[in-house]
């Protein structure tokens, strides 16, 4: 298992190398002169030269590339123009916020998505099943930023139950955190609840038809055991794949959600960097988030091995 894990990490290296090359290339697609865009109309030639120097774009491209990778290996992702702070440090400082929000949304997704999907599969073709499928269809079709706005109008402005935005660290004030994070987490989770319910239902339906489930029932095992142990354990593999996708969607969806709810996480950092043309921050933020998600997916692969004893990675 350990060997598999190391191997899997090694296969991620070329991907990360390509990913970093693409983010580097992206910043060189900026049409015209980024210094002119940053400096504005009134910038003097000296100021423009200074901006070019600060960005490092006054040097030949291969030197920029070498410096970029040299920096990466030292954990140096450049400096944010807007914040005057290292990109890596600025991102890491906001990581707990995005992480706590994503975990909250993931918990909502897992509880609601799995429960709805399993219930629908057990009552196949019933009214409950149809209601779940219709709800899930709406879930995957509602634009999350729009849902967020409607929730703000309704729950924050009209009813005054929850704050319109902002963020309170969990360790400082758990209740405050819950109040601030609930609407963002729900608006972030709704799409994924729909996705997960759909997949859970179809895999459960497939598993419940298998011979071993019939055998388990024939043995006279109680229904809860048949469903919970025999069927669900076998349905978990495809579900885990979807959970991997869901984590990616949650983390990247936080860009929009954090902006709407003024949550000071990585997402909001990225949007403000984009709107202020803080190119090093955009480049670094994109790279860090993607690298994190590549690692998450390795973790998901690892979960297969834990969940399914038939998956043997080290016997090859």
């Amino acid at each position: 298992m350990a060997r598999f894990f190391v191997q899997r990490l090694l296969t991620a290296l070329p991907i990360l190398a390509m990913v970093s090359l693409i983010t580097f290339g992206l910043m060189h697609l900026i049409p015209g002169d980024p210094a002119a865009a940053l400096g504005g109309m009134s910038a003097t030639p000296e100021q423009l030269a200074q901006i070019r120097h600060d960005l490092g774009i006054d040097r030949p491209i291969w030197i920029q590339l070498v410096r970029y990778y040299g920096g990466l290996l030292h954990g140096d992702l450049g400096r944010s123009i807007l914040l005057g702070q290292g990109v890596a440090a600025a991102t890491l400082a906001r990581l707990p916020v995005t992480l706590s929000l994503s975990l909250y949304a993931l918990a909502i997704t897992l509880v609601l998505g799995l429960a709805a999907g399993i219930a629908a599969a057990l009552r196949h073709n019933s009214i409950l099943d149809q209601a779940v499928m219709m709800g899930a269809m709406f879930g995957i079709s509602v634009p999350s930023f729009w849902l967020a706005l409607l929730m703000i109008i309704f729950f924050a402005v009209e009813l005054g139950w929850l704050p319109t935005g902002g963020y309170v660290p969990f360790l400082q004030d758990p209740v405050g955190w819950l109040r601030a994070a609930t609407m963002p987490a729900i608006s972030l989770a709704l799409l994924q609840v729909g996705l997960l319910a759909r997949i859970t239902r179809s895999t459960m339906l497939e598993t419940l038809r298998q011979d071993f489930v019939r055998t388990a029932r024939a043995k006279g095992l109680p229904n809860a055991l048949v469903v919970g142990k025999h069927a669900l354990a076998n349905a978990l593999i495809p579900i885990t794949t979807v959970v991997g996708i869901i984590i990616t969607l949650l983390v990247s969806g936080s860009v929009v959600t954090e902006t709407i709810f003024s949550v000071p996480g990585i997402g909001q950092l990225l949007t403000s960097a984009i709107l202020n043309r803080d190119y090093p921050m955009v480049q670094g933020g994109l790279l860090i988030m993607t690298a994190l998600l590549v690692l998450v997916n390795i973790g998901i692969d690892f979960c297969y091995a834990l969940l399914d004893p038939r998956v043997r990675y080290d016997e090859r």
Binding site: L21, I22, M27, L29, T248, V255, L270, L286
Partner: peptide, 21 residues
Amino acid sequence: RISDALMAFPAILLAIGITAV
């Protein structure tokens, strides 16, 4: 391998990155 790398980016983030640039 090229598609692996492009698909490693979360869809909306890559789209945001490209339109931002």
